[in-house]
């Protein structure tokens, strides 16, 4: 008799869980969990909750969670790279260039913020939700505003394509974790820290998939070109970078070889028919950087 009742309850629970899935309504799932618990079937209640958790883990990360993840990763980037470079005028200039490029990127509804890391290495990073960093060393290698615009466009591309979130999403699914964001940070802060630490390791030490870097190279030159910067500036910059002896092995460990990157940029300029505007704004860049680097 009890088995029959349990079976009926189980089927009801599953039906309600499926209804919750179809309706996207956590309340239905909670109601099903409550019915099972009130009937004394704690195991079924846990199954329903676990089912919701599993479904939640398979679904994309929303912006509220992305913002928390982005801030946590940004904190680690700042800590690992010696803090931000305290030059308000130069930081404002980098923000003006970056936000101008972001104005017409493929995800212009979110806020993008840019900071300079007080580090001599040549590198740049993008955390989810639009937290973007360039090192002081990278700025020293840049010769004009069009190059800076393309570099920032590359980082904006990582955000528009949610590259780091993809890494987190995959690690969540492998670990069977549903909540990587707000609720998880609150209820299981140690596990949240593990998720963030894993993402930081990928971002700073191991690097993203090469395909993601090449995609961001293509987007960087497209986004900068939309504003009017000359797309050839990014080619010049990558060629210069290739000739430099980078003192940060991370850049070369975490990015594709320059031949592939240049080839991706050149084919994008040609296929997308990006106009050679001749706009480099070398003087404006020099004025902003003068005495600050």
């Amino acid at each position: 008799m009890r088995n029959k009742l349990s079976h009926r309850l189980f089927m009801t629970g599953l039906a309600l869980l499926a209804a919750a899935g179809l309706a996207g309504c956590a309340e239905i799932q909670q109601a099903a969990e409550g019915v099972a618990r009130n009937s004394g079937n704690e195991r079924l209640a846990k199954t329903i909750r676990g089912g919701g958790t599993l479904i939640g883990g398979l679904l994309p990360i929303g912006y509220d969670e992305e913002r928390i993840i982005g801030q946590a990763i940004a904190l680690q980037v700042v800590a690992r790279y010696g803090g931000v470079y305290d030059r308000p005028d130069l930081t404002r200039y980098v923000n003006l260039v970056g936000r101008s490029v972001a104005l017409t990127c493929d995800r212009s509804d979110i806020d993008y913020r840019f900071a300079i890391l007080n580090h001599d290495s040549i590198n740049a990073f993008a955390a989810p939700a639009g937290y973007i960093f360039v090192t002081r060393g990278l700025l020293k290698t840049i010769k004009n505003e069009a190059e800076l615009a393309a570099v920032l466009g590359h980082e904006i591309g990582h955000v528009t394509q949610r590259h780091i979130l993809d890494v987190i999403q995959r690690s969540k699914q492998i670990a069977g974790v549903a909540e990587a964001g707000l609720a998880y940070a609150k209820t299981n802060p140690d596990a949240f820290k593990n998720v963030i630490d894993g993402a930081v390791k990928t971002l700073l030490d191991e690097g993203l998939d090469q395909s993601k870097e090449l995609e961001s190279d293509r987007l960087g030159v497209i986004f900068a070109s939309r504003v009017g910067y000359d797309p050839a500036a990014y080619e010049t910059f990558l060629t210069r970078l290739r000739t430099l002896k980078g003192d940060d092995p991370a850049l070369f460990k975490t990015h594709p070889d320059f031949s592939s990157r240049l080839s991706a940029v050149q084919s994008t300029i040609s296929e997308q028919k990006l106009p050679a505007t001749g706009i480099l704004l070398a003087d404006r860049f020099s004025r902003a950087a003068s005495g600050a680097l």
Partner: peptide, 8 residues
């Protein structure tokens, strides 16, 4: 939908 399930 994911946000609903994760009960954030």
């Amino acid at each position: 939908l994911g946000k609903g399930f994760r009960r954030t």
